[in-house]
Amino acid sequence: TGIVNVSSSLNVRSSASTSSKVIGSLSGNTKVTIVGEEGAFYKIEYKGSHGYVAKEYI
């Protein structure tokens, strides 16, 4: 489990790349469930599926 550490919002992406499609966003202080790691990204549970967020903001 981690907490989103941004002042505005954090993009949730379809894969572990900054060039991948943005599938949603999370507000600061949102609790997320981390299910894996891939490079500079965490794989998280997101809306019944999975998404990826940059580690530096969790």
Rank of each mutant, 00 (worst) to 15 (best):
T1C: 11
T1R: 05
T1G: 08
T1M: 15
T1F: 14
T1S: 12
T1Q: 13
G2C: 08
G2H: 08
G2L: 07
G2P: 05
G2Q: 06
I3Q: 08
I3V: 11
I3H: 10
I3A: 06
I3G: 04
V4K: 03
V4S: 05
V4Q: 04
V4M: 05
V4H: 05
V4W: 04
N5G: 06
N5Q: 10
N5W: 08
N5K: 10
N5T: 11
V6F: 07
V6M: 09
V6R: 05
V6S: 13
V6K: 09
V6H: 13
S7K: 11
S7R: 06
S7M: 11
S7L: 11
S7C: 11
S8C: 11
S8I: 12
S8F: 15
S8E: 14
S8W: 15
S9I: 11
S9W: 14
S9P: 11
S9Y: 14
S9A: 14
S9E: 13
L10T: 11
L10H: 04
L10D: 02
L10Q: 05
L10P: 11
L10M: 07
L10R: 03
N11D: 15
N11Q: 15
N11F: 15
N11Y: 14
N11E: 15
N11K: 13
N11P: 14
V12E: 00
V12T: 01
V12D: 01
V12F: 02
R13C: 10
R13T: 14
R13E: 04
R13G: 06
R13D: 02
S14G: 10
S14Q: 15
S14H: 13
S14W: 09
S14P: 04
S14Y: 14
S14V: 15
S14M: 13
S14C: 09
S14I: 15
S14D: 14
S14L: 13
S15E: 15
S15Y: 09
S15K: 11
S15H: 14
S15A: 12
S15T: 10
S15L: 09
S15N: 11
A16Q: 03
A16E: 03
A16Y: 05
A16R: 02
A16C: 05
A16V: 06
A16I: 05
A16K: 03
A16H: 05
A16D: 03
A16N: 05
S17T: 10
S17N: 13
S17P: 01
T18K: 11
T18G: 13
T18H: 15
T18Y: 13
T18R: 11
T18I: 15
T18E: 14
S19Y: 10
S19G: 13
S19E: 11
S20W: 06
S20G: 10
S20Y: 08
S20T: 04
S20F: 07
S20K: 02
K21Q: 14
K21M: 12
K21A: 15
K21R: 12
K21G: 08
K21I: 11
K21L: 12
K21S: 12
V22C: 07
V22S: 06
V22P: 06
V22D: 04
V22E: 04
V22I: 14
V22L: 08
I23F: 03
I23N: 01
I23D: 01
I23E: 02
I23H: 02
I23T: 03
I23V: 07
G24H: 02
G24E: 02
G24V: 03
G24I: 03
G24P: 00
G24C: 04
G24D: 03
G24Q: 02
S25C: 11
S25D: 07
S25A: 11
L26M: 05
L26E: 01
L26I: 11
L26D: 00
L26N: 00
L26P: 00
S27Y: 10
S27H: 11
S27A: 14
S27N: 13
S27D: 15
S27P: 15
S27R: 13
S27C: 10
S27K: 14
S27M: 14
G28T: 09
G28L: 13
G28E: 10
G28D: 09
G28F: 12
N29P: 08
N29E: 08
N29D: 10
N29T: 07
T30Q: 12
T30E: 11
T30G: 06
T30D: 14
T30R: 04
T30K: 06
T30M: 11
K31D: 06
K31E: 13
K31V: 15
K31C: 10
K31H: 11
V32Q: 01
V32T: 02
V32W: 03
V32P: 02
V32Y: 03
V32M: 04
V32D: 00
T33I: 14
T33Y: 10
T33R: 11
T33E: 07
T33Q: 10
I34A: 01
I34F: 03
I34R: 01
I34W: 05
I34C: 03
I34T: 02
V35D: 03
V35H: 05
V35S: 05
V35T: 07
V35I: 14
G36T: 05
G36P: 00
G36S: 08
G36A: 09
G36Q: 06
G36M: 05
G36F: 04
G36N: 06
E37K: 05
E37T: 11
E37G: 05
E37Y: 07
E37C: 08
E38P: 01
E38K: 07
E38A: 09
E38V: 11
E38L: 07
E38N: 07
E38M: 08
G39E: 06
G39M: 05
G39S: 04
G39R: 05
G39Q: 06
G39I: 03
G39L: 06
G39F: 05
G39V: 03
A40Q: 12
A40M: 13
A40Y: 09
F41L: 02
F41R: 00
F41E: 01
F41D: 03
F41N: 02
F41V: 02
F41H: 04
Y42V: 03
Y42T: 01
Y42K: 01
Y42C: 03
Y42Q: 01
Y42N: 01
Y42I: 03
K43V: 11
K43R: 11
K43M: 09
K43W: 04
K43D: 02
K43H: 05
K43I: 13
I44L: 03
I44H: 00
I44S: 00
I44Q: 00
I44F: 02
I44P: 00
E45G: 05
E45P: 05
E45F: 09
E45C: 10
E45Y: 08
Y46L: 04
Y46I: 04
Y46G: 01
Y46S: 01
Y46M: 04
Y46H: 05
Y46P: 00
K47L: 14
K47D: 09
K47A: 10
G48S: 08
G48Q: 09
G48C: 07
G48P: 05
G48H: 07
G48A: 07
G48T: 07
G48R: 06
S49H: 10
S49V: 11
S49Y: 10
S49W: 06
S49M: 14
S49G: 14
S49A: 13
H50E: 07
H50K: 05
H50S: 07
H50I: 15
H50R: 05
H50P: 05
H50F: 15
H50T: 11
H50L: 09
G51P: 00
G51H: 02
G51Y: 03
G51K: 01
G51A: 10
G51M: 02
G51N: 01
G51I: 01
Y52F: 14
Y52L: 01
Y52P: 00
Y52I: 01
Y52E: 00
Y52H: 02
Y52G: 01
Y52V: 01
V53T: 02
V53C: 05
V53Y: 00
V53S: 01
V53D: 00
A54R: 12
A54C: 11
A54H: 10
A54E: 15
A54T: 07
K55V: 05
K55F: 03
K55T: 04
K55D: 00
K55A: 04
K55W: 03
K55P: 00
K55I: 05
K55L: 03
E56S: 07
E56F: 08
E56M: 10
E56R: 12
E56K: 15
E56I: 13
Y57V: 05
Y57K: 07
Y57F: 14
Y57W: 11
Y57A: 13
I58V: 10
I58N: 03
I58Y: 03
I58H: 02
I58P: 02
I58T: 03
